[in-house]
Design a protein around this nucleic acid. Sequence first.
DNA 1: GCGGAATATTGACATCCGTCGATATAGTGA
DNA 2: TCACTATATCGACGGATGTCAATATTCCGC
Lengths: 127, 127
Amino acid sequence: MTTIDLPLVTRETAAIAIGSAPDAACCGPLTRETITPADAEAFARRLKALADPVRLRLVSIVAASEGHEACVCDLTEPVGLSQPTVSHHLKILTEAGFLSRSKRGTWAYYRLVPGALEAVAAPLVSV
Amino acid sequence: MTTIDLPLVTRETAAIAIGSAPDAACCGPLTRETITPADAEAFARRLKALADPVRLRLVSIVAASEGHEACVCDLTEPVGLSQPTVSHHLKILTEAGFLSRSKRGTWAYYRLVPGALEAVAAPLVSV
DNA sequence: GCGGAATATTGACATCCGTCGATATAGTGA
DNA sequence: TCACTATATCGACGGATGTCAATATTCCGC
């Protein structure tokens, strides 16, 4: 069977998953007006998912892989960590909306969600 | 006396503090080629400094303040935390190169380092 | 120099996080 | 149905992190 698990859709990621304008991440530019506590909480949650050296490498490796996707077995060796740990990091990235998971056979293929990285970068740029 | 504490200059922040081209953050776009473990470590360290709701609010409040600077006494009440905790967060942001500290009298004024936020956002955008 | 105010540092505490080994789950092929 | 493979989940452990009260430090005005 072939199933596709889209990333967990929350109020923050809905705008990205649905529309074609991923710029509406969570909030306007940080430096224009003070961010609300709720928006800060949501934005911090997504940044935290990315703020780990292993997860940054996983995102980078997936994006640079053949067909822009990779299975867990392809990722374990490059990062030098156990399979459960790699699966754990991939789950965090998927739930944060950065990766999507599609299972084909016994393999689970992960790929970058288009616009997700740009969306999290948007509030950081002034103009 | 009046002293100015520039943010801690490391190999990662040196390019920002010195030059006028803050784009050379640490690495090229994440999605173009796989990031090196060392670059991932450095990039994660800077993202982690930003990935906290309180610190995001502090950055936002400082940037939106009069004269683009604020002292600790101005920041304690808005975030609703104790003075030591606010000083702790400001130290983390300063050491990560996002804020600079200048002491005038008993007060310590913090301001946003120009280009620091844009520099951390750069590796996340594809083009 | 002394008292007071603003800030930084210290020490303690609870919680969260990254990691692994062991195990469970799901799919394949014989 | 039965091994075998790939992946996910669980439980445990050590280390990092956010918070506060107490204290130290630094600076100003008198």
